[in-house]
Design a protein around this nucleic acid. Structure first.
Lengths: 140, 140
DNA sequence: TATTGTTATACTCTATAACTATA
DNA sequence: TATAGTTATAGAGTATAACAATA
């Protein structure tokens, strides 16, 4: 079987299970990616955030609007450069982040079941290889 | 980094590149999965086809409608059990299948670049493990 | 003019529920 | 009643293009 198809099928199963886990904790994959990016990286504008998450700026705006409506984030102008919107987590946003992190960690435990550290290292190495093998054709 | 996130990111990159490759050959992932399933398996009804592809029956009907409109497949009643619709490739469907197979094989070559047979075997083993680790929660 | 982000719009994939036809 | 498939509808995620605000 083509390795792309194999990866695609595994990723579909795993992604769906992960989506379910995140949904059970009040989130979704894009919301989780946005929250964890905001928490763990020093991002200077929405363009960088969109890049990290792997989506377009307009798509990010769409998600931020929904997260704003849910009270998870606020956007305010950067006084130093008023074109830039500083995205910040609200208290509710922090709470949801904690929930999702818990769900993601539990999911990770389940995923790693029966896998040794060296298995994980192999997997990460192989996934990185695959990713770099298509990188030239995936400039998004 | 959580292994689910790592897989998710790799799969996103690879899937997008694969989608692009298939789109360049006149198809898409679901169309390719449906065509290859029809060609390589002995399926008895649409329920089985949907299962193999990993989608719902109604979702499959949606794709078959589009493929029918494009002239890739025909559906006719099974004379032995008129509830069953036999899905068959048209000449055009065969041609598109060939195109997509070519694109998929070329993509696979690119994906395997610098990977040994044993790397591929490792990857398949690890992906299978991940898949089985979430299988109980992914009955779709 | 260039940069940052939003709005408007639309597409793809997916799903659930209700339905038709057949057994 | 049960099975096979379709239709109707909707929702999530994504994208492009045109726009407004700021520099």
């Amino acid at each position: 079987m083509p390795i792309g198809l194999r990866l695609s099928r595994a990723a579909k199963s795993v992604s769906r299970a992960f989506d379910d886990a995140l949904a059970g904790a009040g989130g979704s994959l894009p919301v989780w990616l946005i929250l964890i990016s905001l928490k763990s990286r020093d991002l200077h504008n929405q363009r960088e955030l969109a890049d990290v998450v792997g989506i377009r700026e307009a798509t990010l705006t769409h998600h931020l609007n929904a997260m704003d409506a849910r009270g998870l984030v606020t956007r305010r102008r950067d006084p130093g450069n008023r074109r830039i919107h500083l995205v910040e987590l609200t208290e509710e946003g922090e709470a949801v982040f904690g929930q999702l992190r818990g769900a993601a960690m539990a999911f990770d435990q389940r995923l790693r079941r029966d896998l040794s550290d060296s298995d994980i290292a192999d997997l990460e190495r192989l996934l990185s290889r695959l990713q770099s093998n298509v990188a030239d054709d995936d400039p998004r």
